[in-house]
Amino acid sequence: MTTMLDVANASVSFGGLRALKDVSISAEEGQVTALIGPNGAGKSTLLGAVSGFTRLDEGRVTFRGQDITGMRPHQGVGLGLARTFQDLEVMQRLTVAENVLLGFPDQPAERLSRLLLTPWVANRHHRATVQKTVDLLDHVGLLDRADTLASDLSYGEQKLLVVARLLATGADMLMLDEPGAGLPDVNLHQIGSVLREAVAGGRTVLLVDHNMDLIMNYADRVTVLHHGQVIATGTPAQIQANQAVIDVYFSRSHTAQDPVDEPLTPSQKGAPDAS
């Protein structure tokens, strides 16, 4: 088994608040690695650091043996890493099919030179990409919504759309920020099975979520973050039995599910480090 993604000693602070403190995690090829922890634990920050959206103060990110620390956000897909966002970032005024079509990278039909000088080539490629889009939409069950504006989709459908867009990138490493949050069970298992199929097809998945159903049913390994630090790593079963995790996470799962806008709320910042 080879390590796809390796984050070593990552630290990030935002204006005095340390969102990540010396965090090291890795994701193995062909596995679903889950990152859990209460709100403000630094999960999304870590995802941002890996995908180039957040800058690391210290530490290194290695992907397939190549140092990608300080990568710019748009370079991820070219290297084979793609991500989703917690607030989805669906392109609201584009149709479902258009959203997914944009997921396919390096299309000749978006290069001006190809578009204007060899339009027939661009058109042929474009038809092929649309066909791939149709296939993918069918795969995730959104084909009958293809020409609907993304803003007219339900929340669950939007989450599926985001996953479809992620798959379209063809990246080997898929990183999802809270794909399960706020979803009814039907959609949850739709997403879960799509992810499982992706892994069966050789992709590697890094999952950030609160949803215990999703984690316990679909993750191979789980890392728990709390106050910007790793407090446990193991299989889902090991994590469920881990006393430290039970103390900080499961016992407070109700508060952890509460909607909190800021990654670090003052109350959490000021809370004494009990663990």
Binding site: Q66, D67, I68, G70, M71, Q75, G78, L79, D172
Partner: peptide, 11 residues
């Protein structure tokens, strides 16, 4: 800091 960027090979 953005002036010091690594050169990355594409997949």
């Amino acid at each position: 800091r953005s002036l010091r960027r690594p050169r990355l090979r594409r997949a």
